[in-house]
Nucleic acid binder design. Structure first.
Lengths: 328, 328
DNA sequence: GCCATCTAGGACAGATCGTGTCCTAGATAC
DNA sequence: GTATCTAGGACACGATCTGTCCTAGATGGC
């Protein structure tokens, strides 16, 4: 089963992969699977421990080995299905990932897709195509490929070519040196040095199409204001993207019932009467998003503020109400 | 920098980790980083190739090495942030993952969380708590922990104890031998052998609380009808969970506009007039889900069928409409 | 309480493997 | 053409790895 009869590094990887199954492995079974003696297995396990991946052993009869959480994260050995699941999950979240991990999320996706066998690539694409992205109405839909291509080019210092549809103007072709992808709230920006215009620019990624790395390498320059994230923040601060607002909603349901459907980290409803409560909190989510979430709690509610939310809720409600067969 | 001066397996892992950065590495730099000679780097690269992880080399001046997609997926070496991003992404999707990868998704999450350093565990928990899960109104909310604990116990053949809130009865304590987690549509089931009742049972995971593995091992039994998935399907077929229905909706917008907001894999709208079109397709998504998605296209629409969708849309609309400040 | 079964780890001998240093060949960019 | 990279053969020395045999300690079932 093992490729070479006695290739230590390969065997260590196999061992790592076996131990990542969440079960207990008796030394004898590992020895059989790896085609080596029991003693060697013990030595290999010691090696893994030296590398910082703690293997826990249960002593006594029917004991065994098991990989547990340690200081360092061991290399993850995934099977096909798991890899596909992760890729699909990350792509689904690529547009509107949880705040604070957007950039890491794209990095992880880029890393995975770089080495994903092509047969799995097809499965990922198919599965992803079958999901409707839940984007809010402002059309800031970004294909995961766009993000990964840009991230990959930036990480590899390769020049990037793409079409850009600026605010009012027609589409233009750009050739840039991509430096960093930055996510602010729900929007992605690319900080890059525009070669034709000979100047730094920030591009809104949702307006980028058909990006591809030319293959030509470039020497990294220093980003103008020191930090790319800071640079973006200044460049777009006037937009007010992802501005926070105060949410104030009254539910026609007991506080405990509402609390069950809203994570405590988001906010804790205060009871008003026995079967009414009020939720006040701050949010940076798109307003339509919030409207939908409120509706999906399954309870009646009244929006006290902000006004934009009232409007969003009313519009969404009107659209839904009008859609029932007319006259009925 | 390298732990041991000459530990080949460890060096191979480092090399794998370096190569997973999406950039090109000249052999000289790798040699420096790994603390070995250029020749050894070449040999190591050959080793990786033998293991099935193809390393592409660009020839000539400023050439270098780069890991590309091959037949096998190499062990993923993630940094802290990437690991957190994946964990958060998988947990977010744990309840309502993309159809066809739910089980793999939970397996991957279990695998990751098993070895996730505790410092990262906290970050994952914090980040996840800050997101509102978009559950539909029927309260089938499942904590990711519940799924991973069960999956882990089933994989390791460990007995499981939990509280179960059956349909109408009060909560009861159960002790079972968990065999398999099955996901049908948007609902999770556990196929297990109930020790106290001495019989096979399927449990709805959303009614399970506080599960934990007792540590006691059990010898796997044969699942009654051969296949666990099949067994669940029969046990719950009367519920009609995840039943497919025919979707028929008319949009007050040009076909091209609607097509832009709905993936082709879901369905292609047929134009009716210049600015009306019709979308017909089948779906197994929860009906409220579909209602929300339709609303978020941003276009007016009319539901032709099925009737459940009409009802769902009307209810959602009513709830939203009623929530604007009264009298205004 | 005993025995079987597991992990833990030291000692040892022989074969294997890995390493750096040389070398040549081929590809590419300036 | 020249510099710079990958590719890979030859060789020799030394370190490493492996299996066998050993004892010690922990645990669960009988």
């Amino acid at each position: 089963m093992t490729p070479s009869p006695t290739d230590t590094p390969a065997r260590l990887l196999s061992l790592l992969s076996l131990l990542q199954t969440p079960r207990e492995w008796p030394g004898g079974e590992l020895a059989d699977r790896l085609g080596v003696s029991r003693r060697t297995v013990r030595r290999d396990i010691d090696r893994l421990r030296d590398l910082g991946y703690p293997v826990q052993a249960t002593l006594g009869a029917d004991g065994g080995y098991r990989l547990v959480a340690g200081k360092a994260l061991p290399p993850l050995v995934l099977d096909d299905e798991e890899a596909v699941a992760i890729a699909v999950g990350l792509r689904a979240g690529a547009g509107h990932a949880v705040e604070g991990v957007e950039e890491a999320s794209v990095r992880a996706l880029t890393k995975l897709e770089q080495v994903l066998p092509s047969r799995l690539r097809h499965r990922v694409a198919t599965l992803q195509a079958a999901t409707i992205p839940l984007t809010s109405g402002d059309g800031a839909m970004i294909a995961p490929e766009t993000l990964t291509v840009i991230a990959s080019a930036a990480a590899g210092s390769e020049r990037l070519r793409f079409s850009y549809r600026a605010r009012d103007t027609a589409e233009s072709r750009r050739l840039v040196e991509p430096h960093r992808l930055v996510s602010t709230g729900r929007r992605w920006y690319l900080v890059a040095y525009d070669i034709d215009r000979d100047a730094w620019r920030t591009f809104r990624v949702d307006r980028v199409s058909d990006p591809f790395a030319t293959g030509a390498r470039f020497a990294p320059r220093e980003v103008p204001e020191g930090d790319a994230a800071e640079y973006v923040r200044r460049s777009v601060s006037s937009w007010g993207a992802g501005a926070a607002y105060e949410l104030d909603v009254e539910f026609e349901a007991p506080a405990e019932a509402v609390a069950e459907r809203i994570p405590a980290a988001v906010g804790v409803p205060e009871p008003l009467t026995e079967d009414r409560c009020r939720l006040r909190t701050t949010s940076t989510d798109p307003i339509q998003w919030t409207a939908v979430r409120l509706a999906m709690t399954g309870y009646d509610f009244t929006v006290r503020g902000p006004e934009e939310l009232t409007t969003a809720v009313r519009e969404l409600g009107a659209r839904l109400t009008n859609s029932s067969p007319a006259g009925d």
